[in-house]
Write a protein that binds this DNA or RNA. Structure first.
Lengths: 200, 200
DNA sequence: GCTAAAGTACAACGATCGTTGTAACTACGC
DNA sequence: GCGTAGTTACAACGATCGTTGTACTTTAGC
């Protein structure tokens, strides 16, 4: 296996290590071992550690964003019961697809390390990942507003609010994974707050 | 100045460096220089780097939580117009008091590095900081619910939702600081969403 | 099968860093 | 004023790590 796949395996291994240890803690040798690859190969592909990191966050953001766009498309194209569909969408969104834990851990690393990443790389990452998803979500919400189901002044901010209420506050401090029941509970209450608020 | 203040100066300098660089990147010598202190003094006070970090996050969380509890007390004790008071409270909350930027950068560092911090330290930090604030906020919200102003099943989750809608999504990717107008806009729309939701 | 490209193993470098020991120095309590 | 405890400057250590060079081996394409 000379040419094929090596690059992808390096990206996968680097994602694991960067997500777990962060940029500064992560060591090139550990990444190489995780990817079952020589450290020299790693340098041949990505130049240096910073280049590898940029490639990893870009690839991870792009891949997860694509998956989330598909989920948006799937659940929010033809809605019958808005609240039920939003709940189903939120549950699907938050339920761990493979690598979701690693991805969101990497997001936390990027958030923490933003000051040490070139601005252009951060911008590209945000554009390919969170912003793309937020924009797509905003588009759907705007449609619902046009249909008279919602009242929205700023769709982009509404999409942000939805994301926060649905996926917010799971920095996963505790080691254990989140149970499906917790996800259902969090999404249900989040969607309810998004739609109806807390006023009596 | 032998005994006095040294410890506090170390904590302040370490807060600055840890918040900016993160635990792994931060170097003891840089922290010592930032605090105008010998690195040996630092070890005499805190044992090692991990001990210093634990002291820093604990102190920062405790101090900021106390300030935020005071803001809650100040704005939400006697409310006349709930929405207006919540907006005023949110603006006061989010408007940078000194060190607020450093504190929230440190929070991001803790979120990213949670896997490398002893569980007990993370628990103590969360208890002294975010959870204490959330609990106090939940208490006020529960009072509003008892007064018939809000409809709340789970006050703690409602407090979480409020925090997310008000202070969420400012990972400060861009270098520039947030303008007061942006804060006002974000808080106003956040409070509106919290109270009324987006349903028509 | 041959050749060029890609991958590997291995050693080595310079740099950074956490941590400790030590001896000199300084401030504060009595 | 003196002594004790805190502070400093300084050197040194072992360890880790990013990165490079090189010689060797493997793989893929023709």
């Amino acid at each position: 296996m000379a040419r094929a796949g090596k690059r992808q395996e390096v990206l996968a291994g680097a994602l694991t290590v960067f997500a777990r240890d962060g940029y500064a803690r992560a060591s090139i040798d550990v990444i190489a071992a995780e990817a079952c690859v020589s450290s020299r190969t790693l340098y041949n592909h990505f130049g240096d550690k910073a280049g590898l990191f940029r490639a990893v966050i870009q690839e991870s953001a792009t891949r997860v964003a694509a998956a989330q766009l598909a989920i948006i498309e799937q659940h929010l194209s033809h809605v019958t019961d808005l609240e039920a569909d939003l709940v189903a969408f939120g549950i699907h969104w938050r339920t761990p697809m493979p690598d979701y834990a690693e991805h969101s851990a990497l997001v936390r690393q990027v958030n923490a390390e933003a000051g040490h990443i070139p601005q252009e790389a951060v911008d590209a990452w945000q554009e390919a990942g969170p912003l793309a998803v937020r924009r797509a979500l905003a588009e759907r919400l705007a449609v619902f507003a046009a249909d008279g189901l919602l009242r929205i002044d700023d769709p982009l901010r509404a999409a942000l609010h939805f994301s926060l209420l649905i996926s917010g506050a799971n920095p996963s401090y505790r080691g254990g994974p989140v149970t499906p029941d917790e996800i259902t509970e969090a999404v249900t209450t989040g969607v309810h707050a998004f739609l109806h608020g807390y006023t009596r």
